[in-house]
Write a protein that binds this DNA or RNA. Structure first.
Lengths: 235, 235
DNA sequence: ATAATAACAGAACAAATGTTCAGTGTCAAG
DNA sequence: CTTGACACTGAACATTTGTTCTGTTATTAT
């Protein structure tokens, strides 16, 4: 047997990179003789020989009979484009738009989007960097509300703040949730704890006292709070 | 005189778009005869005639003597790339990274970046959608701090919250600022009001009382608060 | 060493392709 | 109408270019 050909020989590489450089510069592929001259190959048949190999390896396509009928397949520039596309989609992924579906007021039920609300118009949405959200949050269950009034100050949430919520119907212990209290006709934001049959709603403000609810059916969990944003307006 | 040639005739356009399509498909430009066949031009000399015109108009370059020596200059695909680049930079503009330079604690002076701190390493930065910030905010003066402890609850800011600040050394009335109180050895976040020589520092929490300071030299304005972000962690 | 295969040389050939040129028709301005 | 620029035809011609063929030289396995 003769020598094994593993991967690309220096000549293969030289030819490939020359073709690509030529193509980028001239706008069309080089001829066989031009390739030969630039890669120190004296005979056109040898260039032909290598081109056929490169075609079999899948690096290019040739059209027999046509001058300069070389179509580079795995080029550097195609990588550039692919990378750009990748970066593009990555960037797009990093920024997600969350629909601002309404206001949250203590005295009235808060708006909750329908179970499948992917069809909303983003006429009023807020843009959030993905990195601000918990890593695994599926973004299609998120919506945002603007807080109206000072009634949420025990949750450290101000008038005008934006709360980003995730649609859930049951809360786990320690999560901050928006709940509707049936017996009080009131919406509130509290940390949720279910402790041996009794619900404890703990204000975020550590100086304030929790609410205890013995009948869990009187609280309706509207969603859990994922993010609170306060934009300070300067006039 | 003869008829004026204004812009591109249908034939010019047909030839150009064919060359581009061919180039994209095959990876190399078409020959003159191929162009003629596809654009219903019977004579190679006419194709040559048009190609020379298109070259003079700057749509392509030709290398005399070389087969398929056509280099398309103003192609659609170059537009695609340009657009992608544009979109890319637009997207990048929408998302800005703000350096997280340290913690803000009531009992000690808060870190303030140097006057020109554009050279920081973004080892720990937070990404913010531009739309969340006041429109005209120049982003190079922004930095972020993480709040440590419960001492800012009168500013409605919790332990762990992130405050995005803008570097200023003087505050205007109504702005929320971080100030260092010399005589108390304390950092605090308050709304700033200068009222006939006296400074009023108003807590964000409407249930709390303001601080009045008669000697303006005892307060050092460290920056104004632009945004407050609270990430609710779910374990 | 020897055989087999890969790598290369050189030249001849044929096909593809660009170039040129002598004409023809058309249209609009003078 | 005449003229001249423009649009176009057809074909011949000259190069460029890919292809092929014969042969030589290196490399490697047995």
């Amino acid at each position: 047997m003769a020598r094994k050909r593993r991967g690309l020989s220096p000549r293969h590489q030289k030819i490939l990179s020359f073709i690509e450089a030529y193509q980028n510069e001239a706008g069309y592929p080089p001829s066989i003789r031009e390739i030969g001259t630039q890669t120190q190959i004296s005979s056109t048949s040898v260039v032909n020989y290598y081109l056929n190999q490169l075609e079999e390896m899948g690096f290019l396509e040739r059209k027999s009979g046509v001058s300069r009928g070389i179509n580079l397949l795995k080029t550097q520039s195609s990588n550039v484009i692919q990378n750009a596309r990748k970066t593009l989609s990555n960037l797009a992924d990093q920024l997600i738009t969350i629909p601002l579906v309404g206001n949250i007021v203590a005295g009235e039920p808060m708006p909750v989007p329908a179970s499948d609300f992917s069809y909303y118009d983003p006429d009023s949405g807020i843009d959030i960097a993905r990195s601000l959200l918990p890593a695994s949050e599926s973004e299609d269950q998120l919506y945002a509300l603007r807080v109206h009034g000072d009634s949420m100050i025990d949750a450290m949430v101000n008038d005008g703040d934006i709360v980003v919520m995730k649609k859930v119907d049951r809360a786990r212990n320690g999560e901050m949730v928006a709940v509707w209290l049936n017996d009080r006709d009131e919406t509130t934001l509290k940390y949720f704890y279910l402790e041996n049959g009794r619900i404890r709603l703990q204000p975020a403000n550590p100086t304030m006292q929790p609410i205890y609810i013995n009948d869990p059916s009187t609280v309706e969990v509207q969603g859990k709070v994922v993010l609170v944003i306060r934009q300070i307006s300067h006039n």
